[in-house]
Design a binder for these strands. Sequence first.
RNA 1: GGCCCGAUGGUCAAGCGGCUAAGACAUCGCCCUUUCACGGCGGUAACCCGGGUUCGAUUCCCGGUCGGGUCACCA
Length: 485
Amino acid sequence: MIPTGKVRTRFAPSPTGYMHVGNLRTALYAYLKAKSAGGTFILRIEDTDQERYVEGAVDIIYNTLRETGLVWDEGPDIGGPVGPYVQSERMGMFKGYAEQLVKEGKAYYCFCDKERLDEMRLVQKASGQAPHYDGHCRKLSPEEIRAKLDAGVPYVIRQKIPQEGTTSFEDVVYGHIEVDNATLDDQILIKTDGMPTYNFANVVDDHLMGITHVIRGSEYLSSTPKYNLLYEAFGWEIPTYIHCPPVMKDAQNKLSKRNGDASYQDLIAKGYLTEAVLNYILLLGWSPKGEREIFTLDEMKDVFDESGIGKAPAIFDPAKLRYINAEYLRAMSEETFFTKAKPYIDSVVKTDCDKALLAEVLHPRCEVLSDIPEQVDFIDAMPEYDLALYTNKKMKTTAKTAKEALAAALPALEGIPAGGFTKDAVHEAMFALIAEKGVKNGWMLWPLRVALSGKQFTPGGGVELAAVLGKERTVARVKAALERL
RNA sequence: GGCCCGAUGGUCAAGCGGCUAAGACAUCGCCCUUUCACGGCGGUAACCCGGGUUCGAUUCCCGGUCGGGUCACCA
């Protein structure tokens, strides 16, 4: 049913809200591990926690995975040989496994109620001990168990954890991990309501689904020995573990889902490109063998290797994300960039202008698309500006020379036919003037740029701005500037 | 608190007993240039501390410090 010898990984999120960067990275690594080995990537929704269930969260998971291209080979919507892939639909299949363990003496019924448990922990804490189940019901005789069962006393099923010895395993990223069994609790497998605990369901599901590599956050590192004891109790093959360090907001805090901009959809809303986000996330905690850092998803499949995953928590660095986003933007063709930039330009520029040219000059000056509105805000209306802007030491300009330059530029600009007011035409006219007057380019062009934009920095120089704005507005703005000067 | 894990420039990170300790981002300077960018060139900047082991430790061992995780009828 399940092909043997093939890598099978899964991403098993709980639908509890946003998909933050750390989750996405785990999904990415799981996907890449499967794909780089020609294996299968599985999506399983772990929705057993009704308390934390968030409406719409499943759709966020689907959408994020689809947008980023992390397509699953088996999952809730498309099925597969080991479904169902939604944990709440699998609820019936766990109790039998737990009872099998009870029969084999590897698990037992526990009738302790909450009060006893609470009191026990209180006492343990007071005496400086770590809280743990004291094994009270381990000692029950078969008759006592039978009687309680018959009397309908509520019970849970606990696993018998060896009280001595150690349990160890090899994690791909953390290496050898070993703990004393004495520090492990007799974990609950089946709850009073007959439902499995997360840990139990997780182990059974991973086994039933033939998962060969478990890729998850390092918060599971310390519970992994318990998982393994379960695999051993069943005689199942233990998967390979790849635990990933957390993604941090800063040195002390993990990236928080809420109240942060770290979720995938927040980043997209901020104008980042999907490919850039994915590429940056790849690099967060993983390092490629060579010097190259920019990879498409397909390329990642070739270069990804779990041995490159680091052990230390990685701090999310927006500056580097910006850089990578800029790399993707610059790699775009002029046409593609225009398409992507247009909505951002349109959000601010309501009047008519040469938007294709505007996009072209914006292109190398844009790290994130959302930078655009602020850069083009002068197009519809001239901002208030100080005449001091005309003074530029390097250009050797002052308000006085600006007046002279603009006075000369005005007729030249007016002389260009309205229908042919292109960048080339403006360029030709201005440079003819510059040659004629024997002045520095900047002497002429700096004032023009200021007169057209009223800004210290602009996308493009005077020539480009004139062409973007068109003849009518260019002439009007130069005239207006002349009046002020 | 017990247990587990981690620590190389501001950030991401190579390194795996002997190196002038890579690279990228950020930062600084120069060049290019009609502003700003882009591009090119160059610079500043790091092995948490203390003991060992060794001819020699960033690398191995022990202790400490700091940080993270985990100890539920949550997932």
